[in-house]
Design a protein around this nucleic acid. Structure first.
Lengths: 141, 141
DNA sequence: TTGACCATGTCAGCATCCTGACATACTCTG
DNA sequence: CAGAGTATGTCAGGATGCTGACATGGTCAA
């Protein structure tokens, strides 16, 4: 048998599960869920993105994303025109309030990520990032 | 700012999300979900474990685990006494059918994990496993 | 131009998992 | 021995996310 490290999948799930938990705890004071944070985060990276594209980026369905966007719009964190200028896609954008909320959330999330990587050297962290990217690459298609 | 690799958390979520998807696809012919597979897997590692302990090992709540165990019992993959000899914990065990199903599932899951690690050398896979373990260590209390 | 094809947004229904709460059973301290 | 503390199983309710389906709008080949 090949000398494969045992349980990489389990370690992956364990790490992701704990990271999600810690992020949820960190974001609770802002009344943001991890999914909502992810949504705002990608919205800043790609202003005017469609809900469907946002859904793909955050690993949820279009339906879930549209429901979440509606919540964020109700809280004035996100704005979206009611009509598309061309095509059907409705471009979503962060509001000023949303940008502020994201800034605060980003600080908290960065803290969690630094805590997660605290036991690793810069070299090891880079190796981890490259390893994960390779896994993603092998699994998509 | 510290020279932190960007987006390790996102890469972690991306990899985990894809791994879950591929496992779900692989296990579909056996009519098993990833959660059910995880349950059976840990049940083999620790026969007679309680549902609450199983829940902790698979990152779900006691309630979800008991509901899932009931499904597996209805399918004769798992057996559990109706009364505890001592204490309240009801020890769960794999049946013969459950063991066979797990064997088949394990092969499929192993294939997915090998596919995930296909782009990495043995050294890199080991580094990935160690990195993930370090993350888990830093994130749990 | 027309018709197949694809992407987006949306509606309805369903499954899953969670939080909160409670009773039971053991453990351990005082 | 009495009481708090902890762990387990269970019930009820609600939130979240998914699948399936449909209409709309744009694209592209025939």
């Amino acid at each position: 048998m090949v000398n494969t490290p045992p349980q990489v999948g389990y370690a992956l799930k364990h790490a992701q599960s704990l990271l999600h938990l810690r992020m949820e705890e960190a974001l609770r004071p802002l009344y943001l869920t991890v999914s909502q944070y992810s949504c705002l985060h990608h919205l800043r990276r790609e202003p005017g993105i469609s809900a469907a594209a946002l859904a793909r980026a955050t690993f949820v369905t279009r339906q879930s994303m549209n429901a979440m966007l509606q919540q964020l719009i109700d809280r004035d964190l996100v704005a979206r025109p009611s009509r598309a200028e061309s095509g059907r896609a409705l471009p979503a954008m962060l509001t000023a309030v949303g940008t502020d909320a994201l800034d605060a959330a980003q600080n908290l999330v960065d803290g969690v990520e630094q805590r997660m990587l605290a036991g690793l050297s810069a070299t090891e962290s880079a190796a981890l990032a490259r390893g994960l990217a390779a896994c993603v690459n092998s699994l998509e298609e």
